[in-house]
Nucleic acid binder design. Structure first.
Length: 472
RNA sequence: GGCCCGUUCGUCUAGUGGUUAGGACUCCAGGUUUUCAUCCUGGCAACAGGAGUUCGAUUCUCCUACGGGCUACCA
């Protein structure tokens, strides 16, 4: 059975890049009927925060990425890591390094200045046991470095293909810091092995780490997983979208009213495509079609305009009830104490003209309260002079007598009024819309009038007749 | 600097040793619509450059350029 994991470090909220890595892992797991785990990489105690753990979990839930088994925290596995460090030292595949941070920094700077390639000089690689014991007894602090063997390391990436690195390019890297805590490349292997991970799917930025980790797998005799590296998500400047460069967190998209499935759809198509001309996919479609070998190798620029479009497509494919559920989840106050059927009418009239839940909320305002003000630009264009008052008044009189408050009747009344006044219907429709909603766009006038009801319409038009002429 | 990776319209992408290089988003024009949105029609717009292989390269190879990642006692 395939087992994959998403392993964020809780040093920030879940951002787009992380969300996509999680998505591809999740899709891969679901597509292969495997398991998907969530592991919190909190070995960096300085920067890891509980707040971010909570935020990441919340975002994962919002996206619908439920994980199998318990949440794994690296901070809870220190004993295992410590044992492994002792083991690898005992095996002679790692050694204690007494070089100070300061002297290493110095060596690095010197190499830079002299335009040489910096490599750790392996000063401590073959220290005589006596010297090592002596320095240990003196209480000198040390790190533990891996003894990188000669030769080369290669693997076949599920996305990038064969990758080979000469081991001479790999430093004897540190696997345990001077405070005894293990580093990423070491614990990553230990955990993936312990969790039985079969496929490591992560960002392209980990490609250089993979040979290091492969060496550790070999040294411990662990079974190696498959690796797949995902290209980066780029900003408009083609630079990696990262936290430092203001990568938006997943929660921002939720707050702006994007549906999780829309975000998933968009993110899925960013760097992957199932070789069809279809663009809109449900979560189930994605699971069914996902194939990691079709993932693109180059980074992809994030385009919010297209996400916006995808979002609109998803929104109008939902039933009115589904939209209502999303609205009440995101905006608990939305709709106030309005009756269910009223909300359904509202959603039906708006859902295909908006692209996000936030837009729906804002456009629906006039359904719940009288307009507080009238769009000045529209007023200037549509309510130019006093004769508008006369026309609107005439229409109000004509609809006051309507008992069957239907769109047909309302339209008939309007056309008759317009005829009587020798006007094109538009001359009357626009001012009436403005008076009723305060804005110059929205659903069909007669539809929104029907939904608002007779009493509200007449009331609002009377207010408008008083207020709007003041703006002329 | 070194190592690794990449390069088709502005963006996301499809594609083939011979195609009018296809689709989507954006943008523009027109149509529908009482408005907006939708919808429909149309338009702009790409194989990074050079050499080689070949009857023929966007497609295969090499080089260059450009872009990205890594180069920590971060992950």
């Amino acid at each position: 059975m395939t087992k994959v994991r998403f392993a964020p470090s809780p040093t920030g909220e879940l951002h787009l890049g992380g969300a996509r890595t999680a998505l591809f892992n999740w899709l891969f797991a679901k597509h292969t009927n495997g398991e998907f785990f969530l592991r919190i990489e909190d070995t960096d105690k300085e920067r890891s925060k509980q707040k971010y753990v909570d935020q990441i979990c919340e975002s994962m839930r919002w996206l619908g990425f439920t994980w199998d088994g318990p949440l794994v925290f690296q901070s809870e596995r220190e004993k295992e890591y410590h044992g492994a460090v002792q083991q690898i030292l005992k095996d002679g595949n790692a050694y204690r390094c007494f070089c100070s941070k300061g002297s290493l920094d110095e060596a690095r700077k010197t190499a830079d200045r002299e335009k040489r390639i910096y490599r750790y000089a392996r000063t401590c690689r073959n220290l005589p046991t006596s010297e090592e014991t002596e320095r240990l007894n003196k209480g000198e602090s040390f790190t533990v470095r891996l003894k990188v063997p000669d030769g080369e390391t290669s693997y076949t990436d599920l996305i990038y293909g064969h990758i080979t690195v000469q081991n001479t390019e790999i430093d004897d890297f540190i696997i345990a810091r001077s405070d005894g805590s293990p580093t990423f490349n070491f614990v990553c292997v230990l955990d993936d092995n312990a969790m039985g991970i079969t496929h490591v799917i992560r960002g392209e930025d980990h490609i250089p780490n993979t040979p290091k980790q492969l060496i550790i797998y070999t040294l411990f005799g662990f079974q190696k997983p498959e690796f797949a590296h995902l290209p980066m998500i780029l900003g408009p400047d083609k630079k990696r979208l990262s936290k430092r460069h203001g990568a938006p967190g997943v929660q921002k998209f939720r707050d702006e009213g994007y549906l999780p499935d829309a975000l998933l759809n968009y993110l899925g198509l960013l760097g992957w495509n199932p070789d069809t001309e279809q663009e809109i996919f449900t979560r189930e479609d994605l699971v069914e079609l996902f194939d990691i070998s079709q993932v693109q190798k180059k980074g992809a620029v994030f385009d919010e305009k297209k996400l916006h479009w995808v979002s609109g497509q998803h929104l109008f494919r939902l039933s009115n009830e589904q939209v209502r559920d999303h609205m009440t989840e995101l905006f608990p106050d939305w709709g106030g104490d309005s009756e269910e059927p009223y909300l359904m009418e509202i959603i039906a009239s708006l859902k295909e003209r908006v692209k996000s839940l936030a837009e729906l909320k804002s456009l629906s305002r006039f359904y719940f309260s009288d307009p507080e003000e009238f769009d000045a630009k529209v007023a200037k264009k549509r309510w130019k002079n006093d004769s508008i008052n006369k026309w609107v008044n005439e229409y109000v009189s004509s609809i006051e007598g309507i008992h069957d408050w239907s769109e047909d009747k309302l339209e008939l009344a309007l056309r008759q009024t317009a005829d009587k006044l020798d006007l094109s219907s538009g001359k009357l429709i626009h001012p009436v819309r403005l008076g009723l909603t305060g804005i110059g766009f929205g659903p069909s006038l007669f539809e929104l009038m029907r939904i608002l009801g007779k009493k509200v319409c007449i009331h609002r038009l009377k207010i408008a007749l008083e207020k709007l002429p003041q703006n002329i």
